[in-house]
Nucleic acid binder design. Structure first.
Lengths: 337, 337
DNA sequence: ATAGTTTCCGTAAACGTTTACGGTCGTTGC
DNA sequence: GCAACGACCGTAAACGTTTACGGAAACTAT
């Protein structure tokens, strides 16, 4: 089945009527509509995307931009797959499709985004891996394409965002450490320019300061957001003449490597060093069990989708004024700290 | 910058010339081409995707279909992100973009694919999570859209594929077990209808049979491809009056849960039960270290891209006749079996 | 100087839709 | 019996590109 032309010829009616029938417009005889629908189904006709979006000016696809490569910046990828699933449950109700816009690790994210939005590929976009200063925000604002971000940035063009409560996490972790009597506290700061790292570190620093404790610079460990990164930090800690008695981290992939590295050095998590981190499917079987923060990724996805729709003119009225949300996480107590 | 029309008016030349200049056609004055290119750059003009692909009949995008949801079917975690990165290094050379076509776990994969290909969304498609019998193959064949698959299927329409060497893995694992004197051997078969499970199990069975050992049915454990799935298998094993002395598995996400579950039951991997599995970033810090199979995901991605291009008419001549490949994995000896 | 050739550029058609507009026919209201 | 109206459908323009075609210069060869 080539196009609407063939379908119309086959039914011996005009393409206008066929189009109207297919799109559920009002002024078409119920009976002819039925004929059209059945024929389309039988012949497997689906409207060509290019023609349709050329005419309508919209594509019906929502893009979720993410970076590829062996090190997922900031999150693991079961993370995204679960979030996507939540996003789609909402989008499907509006006949919108979600695709992942994959930016190669060897390409500049800003240039990539520039290219794909100028091409008119997606009607709206969800950004992830937001950086401290993120030029993508201004780019999308300039192009007037609706978007939201998973994560805040210092760059602010007024768009809504949802961000995990890294600051609340920092507070809870630090207070827990302080209450337990720790004086020498360390923090792992994932490599890269992701804003979440800054948010976390700065809040840790201020909470400690408020309690008369100084976060010493040598206790701020930079690490790649991967198992190997966590392992490297453990080695570094082990090599210190004096090591922190507690450590907090924000990236869920680091923690397994960290555990292993510490154990290899004879340092037992929970006994010799307290650890507070993030939960993921990979952390559930650590021993001692991890004290960490957890959230429902599916629900996060739903919230992202709803927030995005709230900034899309065509859907704005159905969804209220969802602006910015700090997404809460719950702490699950374990034996690690 | 709206369209080519505005750009042409701004330069005071015709849109035809602008288009030719932009697309690197021969008959355009080098000087005007320079002018056009510079103006396009300055004004941020990029050709509209819908108009372009409507006219050309091709979109310049390659789709990689995958399922979303908390359980990545068949592969874990950073697997796909690394593969994508490899794919993109090749595609970028041809100005092709890769997007992930995300099929929600609540949607039928066949229907999803039907919809997206009929819409003319992508020029070519890479399929993953291939099932034992996979109707998607016939669908794409019928629509005459170039595609390959990561994984074989009983359904065969002649398209190229690349598949990990699960059978070689089965052979190596079984022979290793046999050589070590194991008589009671178990296998973990991931849930679902993925073909790789069948390939693995059947080859295990035949190798054992050739050595006079019968794979007992109660030693074939079905498990979800997740950490929790591995843990559940361990519990099941532990509950047995007599348990297998060796176990092989094909999914890399299972193994951490399996380790943990066994240890919780006082069964030590490597000492009380031999384990052979798959390597991934998450398995690198297990102790005892895993005896498992490993591969370069980046190179796999490159191979996938080249194979796909070899079935696309526009690129066929640049890439030879890449047909079907069993992708080798290397075994890394560890302490687990 | 003329014919032939090359270089460059403009014109217009085509790709597959959607939709504003207008037209036909039958029905209703007076 | 006529006007007004509603229900339905066909026509054609428009969306932003690419590209086949032809034509106007400028250049070359005779």
């Amino acid at each position: 089945m080539k196009g609407i032309r063939q379908l119309a010829d086959h039914l011996d009616i005009s393409i206008g009527t066929v189009s109207r029938a297919l799109n559920g417009k009002a002024d078409v005889n119920p009976q002819t509509r039925k004929r059209v629908l059945e024929a389309a189904e039988k012949l497997g006709y689906v409207a060509n995307q290019s023609g349709r979006s050329l005419r309508k000016g919209s594509t019906g696809v929502i893009g979720f931009m993410m970076q590829t490569g062996p090190e997922i910046t900031g999150q693991g990828d079961t993370f995204f797959m679960s979030v996507f699933d939540g996003v789609q449950t909402v989008l499907a109700r509006h006949d919108l499709d979600l695709v992942a816009l994959l930016c190669s690790s060897s390409e500049d994210p800003d240039a990539y985004l520039q290219r794909t939005v100028a091409r008119g590929f997606a009607d709206a976009i969800i950004l992830s891996a937001t950086r401290r200063n993120d030029a993508r925000f201004e780019l999308l604002e300039r192009h007037k394409i609706p978007f939201i971000s998973l994560g805040r940035s210092l760059t602010d063009v007024g768009q809504p965002w949802i961000d995990l409560d890294f600051e609340g996490m920092a507070e809870a972790a630090m207070e827990r450490f302080i209450l337990a009597g720790h004086k020498d506290i360390g923090v792992i700061w994932p490599h890269g320019d992701l804003n979440l790292g800054y948010l976390f570190i700065e809040r840790c620093r201020s909470i400690l300061a408020a309690n008369g404790i100084r976060l010493r610079e040598e206790n701020v460990f930079r690490a790649k957001p991967s198992e190997a990164g966590g392992y490297a930090v453990a080695k570094e800690i082990a090599a210190r003449p004096s090591r922190p008695s507690a450590i907090a981290l924000v990236n869920e992939t680091l923690v397994t490597g960290l555990y292993k590295g510490l154990e290899d050095a004879g340092i037992q998590p929970g006994r010799d060093i307290a650890i507070v981190g993030r939960h993921s499917p990979h952390t559930q079987f650590l021993s001692p069990s991890l004290t960490g923060f957890s959230l429902s990724l599916h629900e996060l996805g739903i919230a992202l989708a709803e927030t995005l729709l709230s900034v899309m003119p065509a859907y704005r009225q159905s969804y209220g004024d969802l602006r910015r949300r700090i997404w809460p996480m719950v702490m699950i107590e374990g034996g690690s700290g």
